[in-house]
C-alpha cells in the first residue's frame, strides 16, 4: 500500500491550474465570510470622482457593506458589491438582485413606484421573476397595500433629513413581504426591500456626495 500522505499534502499545497478553482471553492466553504474582490469592483473603486455609493445590509444574515453605481441605462441603475454581486434599482425600487444567492431576476414595480414617489396610499400590483434552484424562471404576482406612516427623519452623514415614511405590504400566492421606504421630494433616500424568500429584505441607504 502506498502511504503517501506527505506527497498528497504537498500536492494539495501546490495545486494549480484549474484546480485553483477547486481550492477557491474549498476556501470559500471553509471561510464563507472571507472577502473576494471582483475585478469589475476593483476597477470601479479606482474611478475618480468616486461613483455614487449605497450603504446596504441584509439584516437576516447580519451582512452589510457598500455598493457602487456601475451603470445607469434607461432609468435603471446597476449597483455593484466588492465581490461582484449586483442589484438594479428603478426609481429607487429594487428590480433585481444577482449574485447574493437569491434569484430575483426581474420586476415590474411601476404601479408601486407611482404611488410611493407621490407619497400616496393605495393598492398596487407588482410582479417579480425569480431564478429558482432548478435554473427555471418563476413569475410571481403580488397585491400590495401602500400606507403612509407619516413624517420621519433619517440621518445622512449625521445630518437629520425630514422624510415621509411609507410601508408597502404585499401578498402573493406563496409568500408575503413588507417593504419600507423613506422618501423625500419624490426620491427614495432609504428603504428596506424584499429580495425573495432566500435572503429576505435588503436595507439600502443613499450616501450623499460630500460637497
Amino acid at each position: 500500500m502506498k502511504r503517501l500522505w506527505p506527497v498528497l499534502s504537498v500536492l494539495l499545497l501546490f495545486s494549480c491550474g484549474e484546480a485553483k478553482d477547486d481550492l477557491d471553492l474549498l476556501r470559500g466553504a471553509l471561510q464563507p465570510d472571507a472577502p473576494r474582490f471582483h475585478p469589475r469592483a476593483s476597477a470601479l473603486a479606482s474611478v475618480r470622482p468616486i461613483p455614487p455609493r449605497l450603504e446596504v445590509g441584509f439584516p437576516s444574515r447580519g451582512l452589510s457593506g457598500v455598493m457602487l453605481l456601475e451603470t445607469e441605462r434607461r432609468g435603471v441603475q446597476t449597483w455593484l458589491t466588492a465581490d461582484g454581486a449586483t442589484i438594479t434599482l428603478e426609481q429607487g425600487l429594487l428590480t433585481s438582485a444577482k449574485g447574493f444567492g437569491s434569484g430575483l431576476a426581474g420586476s415590474d414595480v411601476r404601479r408601486s413606484a407611482d404611488l410611493l414617489l407621490a407619497a400616496q396610499p393605495g393598492t398596487a400590483e407588482r410582479f417579480h421573476s425569480f431564478l429558482n434552484g432548478n435554473d427555471q424562471i418563476e413569475l410571481h404576482a403580488y397585491r400590495c397595500e401602500i400606507t403612509r406612516l407619516g413624517a420621519d427623519s433619517i440621518f445622512l452623514r449625521g445630518v437629520p433629513v425630514p422624510v415621509q415614511k411609507l410601508e408597502e405590504r404585499c401578498h402573493g400566492l406563496a409568500e408575503s413581504f413588507t417593504n419600507t421606504y423613506w422618501i423625500r421630494q419624490g426620491a427614495v433616500l432609504q428603504s428596506s426591500q424584499w429580495t425573495g424568500s432566500f435572503l429576505g429584505n435588503l436595507f439600502m441607504k443613499t450616501v450623499p456626495d460630500e460637497n
Partner: peptide
C-alpha cells in the same frame, strides 16, 4: 430535493450590465 440547489440564483458574480 434535487430542484433545490444550495442558493437558488447562485452566488457567482453578476453579469456586467449593458452600457449605454
Amino acid at each position: 430535493d434535487p430542484r433545490q440547489s444550495v442558493a437558488p440564483g447562485g452566488q457567482g458574480a453578476a453579469p456586467p450590465p449593458l452600457l449605454p
